[in-house]
């Protein structure tokens, strides 16, 4: 019976943490994206939502794939060890995904800011420009 309870505990913990991280990303990543898209909140919300959907798919996919075990659990100790093993891996992957998302957010923001960046150096000479439109 240990194995079934371990599975349930694993699913509950993994999915719970996934949902928590996804919500955190969704809530706090929005402001980054709004800035990256120059205040275009519709576009920012859309990209934010799409990112979170991708995040859920990858993580829930991994959690369900990693559920299976061949270990035979004879006592509570073994089942806790297995659970910690599995949950530990899920947390590491979630952490990596989280940092990857942060990297994406910051890259988008940087790209957005490039439009307002001043020239890298002052001109070598200055011309009076009456002839050009």
């Amino acid at each position: 019976m240990y194995i079934v309870w371990s599975y349930f505990a694993y699913l509950a913990i993994s999915l719970g943490v996934t949902i928590w991280v996804a919500r955190t990303l969704h809530k706090n990543g929005r402001i980054f994206l709004v800035d990256a898209f120059h205040g275009n909140t519709d576009l920012a919300d859309s990209v934010n939502h799409l990112l979170v959907v991708g995040f859920y798919l990858i993580n829930v996919g991994y959690v369900t794939l990693a559920l299976r075990t061949t270990a035979t659990l004879a006592n509570l100790r073994e089942s806790i060890e297995l659970l910690s093993d599995k949950v530990g891996l899920v947390l590491l992957i979630l952490g990596l995904m989280h940092f990857f998302n942060l990297f994406l957010f910051s890259r988008m923001r940087k790209r957005g800011q490039a439009a307002f960046e001043p020239p890298p150096f002052p001109p070598d000479a200055v011309l009076n420009m009456p002839g050009t439109k």
């Binding site: 020239p119 001109p123 070598d124 000479a125 200055v126 011309l127 420009m129 050009t132």
Partner: peptide, 9 residues
């Protein structure tokens, strides 16, 4: 040359 008159070589 930029339209603001700045010249770069």
């Amino acid at each position: 040359i930029g339209d603001n008159g700045g010249v770069y070589f």
